[in-house]
Computed example of a mutant assay.
Amino acid sequence: MIGRYADRMTFDVILKRMLARVPNSVDKREGSVIYDALAPAAAELAKTYMELDVVMDETFVDTASLQYLILRCKERGVPVLGETAAIIQAETRPVMLELQVGTRFRCGAVNYAVKEKMSPGLYRLESETPGTEGNQYTGTLIPIQSVNGLQSAEIKGVLIPGENGDTTETLRERYYASIDGESFGGNVADYKETVNALHGVGGVKVYPVWNGGGTVKLTVISSDYTVPSEELIAAVQQEIDPQANQGEGLGLAPIGHSVTVAGVKDEPVSITTRLTFIDGWRWEDAREQVELAVRDYFAELAAAWADADATVIRIAQIETRILALSCVLDIADTALNGQTKNVQITTDHIPSLKKIEVVV
């Protein structure tokens, strides 16, 4: 029989079956001795069937909760990724001011602590809050404690994005990915699994034998699906195959593999379109909403970049998303980079919005 036990083996069903085994010569009505004796046992059995449903759910990866999914992942050696802290670059004035390691700053709701000096006026700071909350690209840093002589401190960019820990669904996806592409000894699946587990990496494309036998190229995207910093690229290179000893197996790459790590690049896209606005709206008022809708679409393309054979910007998608805005009545004549056709992004590039021009 197919279905959940608790749906079939209810209290009434179980009690009816138990009473059916009692001779009809005995009073089996509700309130009778035999009824009152069997009813508590039937209730306990019904509860047992409900708990059996839970056991069945937790047994299989497709329905297991996070606690038991972690145990199934351990069986396959799939690691559970925890939260990581963002590493940012900060610029201070005056440049000759020396900050001590551990000096704390605040931007918005996030605290950062100085980890090391990079160069005069430039410091590497780490978010005290793990996860994506520390990935603030710009903003003024306010010192938590007094810093004599400090004139200003600004976030210049994210060097290594912070990442949220695994959820039930992300862990389940990685479990299935470990089955779909069995990783072994430096094959493509092995590189993907290894690189994706590194702090700050959101995806990777693997190009084996890209420059002759024994060579491998890895193109990575940051965990916030933007162009990775040079520091992140260097960190991945060091982990996988240090440049000073390429091919010697001193990193995670197998002996004999000379690995080159690169990052995705932006491909600017200009959009022209003809918009008809709802009464009371003008382009100046709607610009922010329209640009945000396009950037959200581009962000989705970037998030899917690692698993896509090709990245195509589709005019239909852009028009659909802009038309969904409450301020837009109609849209027509949309062109990308001056052409009224879809644009396929260059390999190892992700789209970025250069500008939107609205034709009146």
Rank of each mutant, 00 (worst) to 15 (best):
D62G: 11
D62W: 09
D62P: 02
D62H: 13
D62V: 14
D62C: 13
T63Q: 09
T63A: 14
A64H: 02
S65I: 02
S65F: 09
S65E: 14
L66W: 10
L66Q: 14
L66M: 15
L66Y: 15
L66E: 15
Q67M: 07
Y68F: 15
L69C: 07
L69I: 12
L69K: 00
I70Y: 07
R72L: 15
R72I: 11
C73N: 08
C73T: 06
E75K: 11
R76L: 15
V78N: 10
V78Y: 13
P79D: 05
P79C: 05
P79G: 05
L81S: 06
L81M: 11
L81D: 07
L81A: 06
E83W: 09
E83H: 07
T84R: 00
A85L: 03
A85Y: 09
A86L: 00
A86C: 14
I88T: 05
I88E: 04
I88H: 02
I88N: 03
I88F: 05
Q89K: 12
Q89C: 06
Q89E: 10
Q89R: 07
E91G: 07
E91M: 03
T92Y: 00
T92H: 00
T92Q: 00
T92V: 08
T92K: 01
R93W: 02
R93L: 02
P94W: 02
P94L: 02
P94H: 01
P94N: 00
P94T: 06
V95H: 04
M96A: 02
L97D: 01
E98M: 04
E98C: 01
L99G: 03
L99S: 06
V101E: 12
V101Q: 09
V101S: 08
